[in-house]
Design a protein around this nucleic acid. Structure first.
Lengths: 138, 138
DNA sequence: AAGTAAATCGTAATCATTCTTATAAATGGC
DNA sequence: GCCATTTATAAGAATGATTACGATTTACTT
């Protein structure tokens, strides 16, 4: 996923282009890590001092629904990162300090038969948490 | 884990016995599924109409710290269930409607080398979500 | 350029959770 | 069993993240 693809999706789905939306996607494209709504708000308010929290949350949710962003949650806050460009299913190693990630190629669901006629499986979550090299150095 | 073991842990760690605490553990022992603080509050207020939300949260957190309860989170709410009696590490299949679980014996971390000298791994989460037979029937 | 639907702002509301302070209850020593 | 000490609780206020709302502005269509 990159900025122009994201903007095309937005247009194709009938949503409007705004500079704020482009800047928001650009931020995620540049950071390539999980950011909280607060992180995003702080960054955006540098360029747009009066920007409303509502606009941040509305767009984060919209972008998640459009699969431009991926969502997860830790320490009681939702976090978002740009959807990975690799289109095959994968998981992440996540630094809980800075939100940086590393891809885990394999998926535990592949060779694990869970669920049956009784229990309908609708999703799963596999995340490995830790601290990246840079954050440890501090 | 059962009620008497939980109460012994509580005593051994120097915490006091109260009827509310016994009732709280008894509820989890009976339900054997994930409950939210709200679920617990509603149940407890039947027996103790004036019971404070703070007491619920304080005890849920205490019991989690003592490993009497296991914690997870979905739809923006923390959820708790009695620690499984099996003492080997495992994961869960979870019904997002009612919180009922089924154990998954294997752990994807066993045969998956993630992390290295750069990235220090401190934890992981593997949960499979779905809908149990009873909830589908409705 | 005008009209329409969507986006945004500013603020208030909501929801889960935590904190605070005063009171009440449980444990341990006598 | 009684008292002192320590912990638990109630009630409500505070917090932090998120969502909702009415008014205004903006992007897109024709």
């Amino acid at each position: 996923m990159n900025v122009s693809t994201a903007l095309r999706i937005l247009k194709d789905e009938g949503f409007k282009y705004t500079e704020k939306r482009e800047d928001l996607v650009t931020l995620f494209a540049k950071e390539k890590r999980y950011l909280s709504a607060r992180d995003v708000l702080i960054h955006m308010q540098k360029s747009y001092p009066g920007m409303s929290v509502d606009t941040i949350y509305r767009n984060l949710t919209l972008f998640k629904d459009l699969e431009i962003l991926e969502e997860t949650e830790w320490n009681g806050e939702k976090r978002y990162r740009l959807s990975c460009s690799t289109n095959h299913h994968h998981h992440h190693l996540i630094c809980l300090q800075c939100g940086k990630t590393r891809q885990i190629e394999s998926c535990p669901m592949e060779d694990m038969p869970v669920g049956d006629s009784e229990f309908k499986v609708t999703g799963h979550k596999f995340e490995v948490y830790g601290e990246c090299g840079e954050c440890q150095a501090q």
